[in-house]
Design a protein around this nucleic acid. Structure first.
Lengths: 338, 338
DNA sequence: ATGAAAGCGCTAACAT
DNA sequence: ATGTTAGCGCTTTCAT
């Protein structure tokens, strides 16, 4: 039953209403130029026939789609989840749909999704790149599909971007630990390839240096191939086995901090007495942990909302625009863990 | 610069390679039937021209799209976030894209999204309905777009569905509280209109009854118009102001439990000594709360994965199928909060 | 106010 | 092996 007879088109509506397809199209797109009773009749027929406009055909004809693609690292991550809501809400106002893709920080997945989305005729692309090389994104943009970098600055400013100052965020976190007297700080980071990770690392080093200390003596970094809870917990075990334990662990995300806290608890290590922990993101649960988490808050919803806003204006052919860079500032949230 | 000259199509590729559009189409869809050197040449030209296949035109021609729409209550909710990953991963295997929509439990948003998605020519729809009336979804299905209910059983079984036994889940949670001696249990629920909420409520009553007690004396329900953290915290304040405080609060979700725990902590009420709390979902942070959360775990990723699986087979015209119902069982996770 | 007709870019016969 | 061509369902001039 599911594939009865083919979907009804404006053709059969036109036939059933005794008008031409042009008129049907007009009641759809310019109802006011159609005689009232003709319009009523056509609308009634549409309803009777269960007519549903074929958006594919429409978009093909109009030359542009009405969906926007967002390529992020992982929808499962609360950070992106909030960002996604910001994007979706702004797009909804514009009548656009959001297609979400998770790359898991894998460049080949990113490339594949970007290509699929471009082929699908998206109105624009929001992407959190998994590496520093933007040439393929630039190519996409050159082909007429606006691209806005999400949570990542655009080094040469050829692409619009909405980001949060990650260097500052890393600095905020590390500076706090240093001010608390920590001299053996471990930064549990994600892949250096990921710009946010690299930036936070730079910020951390800057903070240490600004305290008149030598980063190479006081700041140690462990890079995980993926920054998720389980991997963090696993990595933590190895860290605890080290001859000299750190006195503080700065985590690249709250999810990582979650894994760290879990691992620490299992090993009976007290936070913050034995080891201090700082997270990053301030996800909803951060305040409610067994030991509430000191972390860096980022305006996530706003990030997504602003990115969608910029994308939408860039996608409007009537308004010529130059790439613009928007940078939000993170904020240190002091709680018990450090 | 963004809208330089129009996107290149197979036409200009054909011209530049000195072949016909049919041949270009063939190197795209049946590379093996094209002479090797012709193919190489065409591929090189495609690359030089930066050719990107127009998926809209292709899908229009082929009569079916390659994106799947998921209409959920809120992507911001960790439950759906996990479900979404399950869906996405299965779809990726099939080369399909996922378009995600949040309804915030509002029927008019649901209707709007469902219509937009149908117009966009989705291959199928995954939907968590915000009310009990499925007639519009049935209409969509009848027009040839397979619909799979997500996290919601299909009463008359006319639609496929993948769900978790919410009656059982509610029963599990309430039975535990009753067995702990609680005789004044408050169920902080979402809108009764939402099937999951109604089902858990039924389960809770069943548990009380099965303990030989009268639900109307021992189980009280407060319905919130939206089940989010902030609203829960706010509602909790009113509950604490009641003449007779409950001895246990059963929450319809971990997000609600989070708000409750936060509110309780602010008021200096001890969990579980003064009031016991049970959540629902077992989101990643549940184990790490100041007081770890006793909750009901649901196989979320599996739910999404299975739903996508069913949808994909239903969307395959070669395999005629009957609607199928899949029901997962929830599991009580005992921790400190109750 | 309405109708007729030309594509949007692609695929799939069918013809060569 | 490759070329030609007829649409997919719609929007949009241009006529009437």
């Amino acid at each position: 039953m599911s594939s009865g007879r083919r979907r009804k088109g404006i053709r059969e509506v036109a036939a059933a209403a005794g008008v031409s397809v042009g008129t049907v199209s007009n009641v759809l797109n310019s109802p006011d130029i159609v005689a009232v009773d003709t319009r009523k009749r056509v609308e009634r027929v549409m309803h009777e026939l269960g007519f549903v406009r074929n958006g594919l055909a429409r978009q093909l004809r109009e030359g542009r789609g009405s969906t926007v693609g967002a390529v992020v690292l992982d929808i499962g991550n609360p950070f992106f989840t909030e960002v996604a809501r910001g994007i979706e809400d702004r797009l909804a106002e514009a009548g656009c749909l959001l297609t979400l893709c998770s790359t898991d920080q894998r460049p080949e997945r990113e490339a594949r999704y970007v290509q699929m989305l471009e082929e699908h005729g998206v109105r624009g692309l929001l992407v959190t790149p998994s590496r520093r090389d933007f040439t393929s994104l630039l190519a996409v943009q050159r082909r007429g599909v606006p691209v806005v970098l999400l949570d990542c600055p655009s080094p040469a400013e050829e692409l619009s971007s909405v980001s949060i100052d990650d260097v500052r965020g890393g600095e905020l976190a590390a500076a706090h630990l240093v001010s608390q007297g920590h001299r053996r700080i471990l930064f549990l980071n994600g892949p250096a390839q990921v710009m946010q990770c690299a930036a936070r690392s730079r910020g951390a080093r800057r903070a240490v240096r600004q305290a008149g200390l030598d980063p190479s003596r006081h700041l140690f970094e462990v890079e995980m191939s993926r920054a998720d809870t389980d991997r963090a917990e696993h990595t933590l075990k190895q860290i605890l086995a080290l001859p000299q334990r750190p006195t503080a662990i700065m985590c690249v995300s709250d999810m990582v901090a979650l894994g760290v806290m879990r691992g620490l608890r299992k090993q009976g290590v007290k936070v913050p007495d034995d080891i201090a922990v700082v997270g990053y993101d301030d996800v909803p649960f951060a305040a409610e942990l067994a030991t509430s988490l000191t972390t860096v808050r980022q305006p996530t919803y706003e990030l997504g909302h602003a990115a969608a806003e910029i994308l939408l204006t860039e996608a409007d052919p009537a308004v010529p625009t130059r790439p613009q860079q928007l940078v939000y500032q993170p904020e240190l949230i002091l709680r018990e863990s450090a």
